[in-house]
């Protein structure tokens, strides 16, 4: 499976790869933690903050229903934010590393 022609350790220590790695790490963990906290707020709210969830805000539509619907919107927003960032930044950074590898500077 391993390709002897590529010096993986060299890529790993390459500043460009390190920069990509750092950026991805913060961004992905940030989104992941936010989404998990936001998701678990729903069952917790439904169990322990029922008075809040029962407040009617839009006709018979109450806070709980809007919060449940917001879970969908938040999930889609996270997907959108991630794919935009990945398409615009991560992909081009990756491409630069691959180009550098192909041009032979990292072999």
């Amino acid at each position: 499976m391993s390709n002897p022609n590529i010096n993986w350790a060299a890529i790993d220590t390459n500043p460009k790869f390190q920069a990509l790695h750092r950026k991805k790490l913060f961004f992905l963990w940030g989104l992941m933690i936010f989404s998990i906290i936001y998701y678990f707020m729903l069952p917790i709210g439904a169990a322990y903050f029922q008075d809040l969830f029962k407040i009617k805000v839009w006709g018979v539509v109450n806070v709980g229903l809007l919060f449940a619907l917001s879970e969908f919107v938040v999930a889609w927003t996270i997907a959108f934010v991630y794919s935009r960032k990945a398409n615009r930044e991560f992909d081009s950074m990756t491409q630069e590393i691959v180009n550098e590898l192909n041009s032979g500077s990292m072999k």
């Binding site: 992941m32 879970e71 999930a75 996270i78």
Partner: peptide, 21 residues
């Protein structure tokens, strides 16, 4: 009613993990 809808949310949120990691 509401509880059924709330139950469905987790099945979508699951895909955030799939997408991100």
């Amino acid at each position: 009613g509401y509880d059924g809808f709330m139950y469905s949310v987790g099945w979508l949120v699951a895909y955030i993990t799939v997408l991100l990691v």
